[in-house]
Simulated assay, not measured.
Amino acid sequence: MRNFTIYLAILLCLMASKILGQETFEAQAKKIALKIENITNEQKAALKVEVEEVNLQLEKGSISQEQADVKKQQLSQARATIIENKVAVTQQELKELVQAQVEGKINSQDFINSEKSKTFKFYYGKNEIIDNVKRKDSINENKFVKRTSNQIVLATGFNNLMTNGSVENSGFYYLRSSFLEWGLTFNTRLFKDSNLLHLKYGLTGVYNTLYLTNNRYFITDKSQTVVAYYPYNLKNNSSYFKNVFITIPIFLELDFTKNRIEDKDNSFRIQRGFRVGLGGFVGYNTNSKQFLSYEKDGNQITERQKGNWNVDDWNYGLSTYIGYKATSLYLKYDLNPLFKDNAIKQNNVSLGVRFDFN
C-alpha cells in the first residue's frame, strides 16, 4: 500500500493548498465540467438531426428498414467517438489544472477581484424556507432552501488494478494511469428538521485508463486476457488501455454544515463545512479500447483497437469521500474483477479528488 500513501500525501497537499486558491480552482474546474456537458449536448443534438434525416429517407422509400438501422448505428458510433475524443482533451485540461493547484500557481486574489458576480443555482422541489444569507462579500441575497438540489459532479485522479489486496508491482504506471468521472447527481435531505443526513444519487460517465509498463500490451488468449511484449517500441505517453462506463452512484452523506438561525427560522445550508459520504455504484461498460502508438520504418503509427478483452459488461463496487465544502478526497473500489475469466483476479481501484457543484 506504499503507493497509496504517496497518492494520499499528494492529494492532501492539494486540499491544503485550496485554502489560498479554492474559489479560483473550483470555478475553473466547474467550467471544465460545463464544457464536458456542452460537448455531450451538442453531439446528441447533431445526432438527432442526422437520425431524423435517415427516418425521412425511410419514409420516402429510398432506403430499406435494414439500411436505416445500419445508418443509425454508424451515426451513433461516430458521434460517440467524437464525444470520447473531445472529452479526452478536457480531461488533459483538468489534469493540468490539478497540477497547477498542487504547485500553487493559481492565485485566488484574481478570483476575488473579478468574480464578484451573482451565482445562479438551480433547484427543484417545494420551497420550505427563504432566508437572507449574508455573503462573504457583504452582498445580501435571498437563498431558496429546498429538500432536493441538483449538482454537477466532476472527479479525477489515479487509477490502477489491485491484485491480492495490493497495487505494488501492478505492472502499470502509477501517475499516468488515471480516471475521469463526470455527470449529474441529486442531493436530498432525508429529514425535514435535520441537516445531517442526505441521500445522493445520479448518473455519471467514467473513463478508466491503464498504462502498461515495459513495452507491453493486452492480448486475449482464449478466455484469458494476458499481457505480451510488443514487437515495436511503444510511446509510453500515448499507449494505453481504456474502459468507459455509465454508472449509477448512491451515497449516504453526513453534512456537518451548521444551521443558520435568523429571523426565528432555521436555514438548512449544504456543503458549507465538512462532509463524509459512504456508498457504492453499479455501472455498464459501453466500450473497451486499446491505443498503441509506435514508430515503424520511419512512420508514426497509432492503432486504436476496439474489443471486449473479456472485460465484464457490468461493474459494481464501493465508494467513499471526505471533504470540505465542494472539494473531497474520493476513493472507489470495484468488487468484481476487471477481466471476468482470468485465473488471477484484478480489481480496479481509483483515488482522486472530487467536486460537487451546486
Rank of each mutant, 00 (worst) to 15 (best):
M1H: 13
M1I: 05
R2L: 08
N3S: 08
I6T: 14
I6K: 08
L12W: 05
I19M: 09
A29Q: 06
A33S: 13
T40W: 01
A45K: 01
E50Q: 04
V51A: 07
E52C: 08
K60G: 05
G61M: 01
Q65N: 04
K72D: 00
Q74E: 02
Q74R: 04
I82W: 00
V98N: 03
V98G: 00
V102Y: 08
G104H: 07
G104R: 14
S108I: 09
I112L: 15
N113A: 12
N113I: 09
N113P: 00
K116V: 14
I129S: 13
I130C: 10
K134V: 15
R135Y: 09
K136I: 07
K143R: 10
K143C: 07
S149K: 01
N150P: 05
I152Y: 13
V153R: 12
A155G: 08
F158E: 00
N159H: 09
L161Y: 05
M162T: 14
G165T: 07
S178L: 02
S178F: 00
T185V: 14
F186Q: 13
N187R: 13
K192L: 09
N195G: 14
L199V: 03
L203Y: 09
G205S: 08
V206R: 14
L210A: 02
T213A: 06
N215L: 01
N215D: 03
R216C: 10
F218E: 01
S223G: 14
V227W: 10
A228V: 09
Y232S: 02
Y232V: 00
N233T: 11
L234W: 00
N236K: 11
N237C: 08
N237H: 11
S238M: 12
S238F: 08
S238A: 10
K242F: 02
N243E: 15
N243F: 09
F245Y: 15
F245V: 07
I248F: 15
L252W: 13
D255K: 13
N259S: 05
F274T: 13
G280P: 00
G283S: 12
N287P: 03
K289H: 11
Y294N: 00
Y294W: 11
D297A: 15
G298W: 03
G298P: 01
I301N: 06
R304N: 11
N308C: 03
W309T: 09
V311G: 06
I322Q: 10
L329S: 06
L331R: 02
K332R: 07
Y333L: 05
L335C: 00
D341T: 04
A343V: 10
I344G: 06
N347Y: 04
L351W: 05
G352Y: 12
V353S: 13
N358W: 03
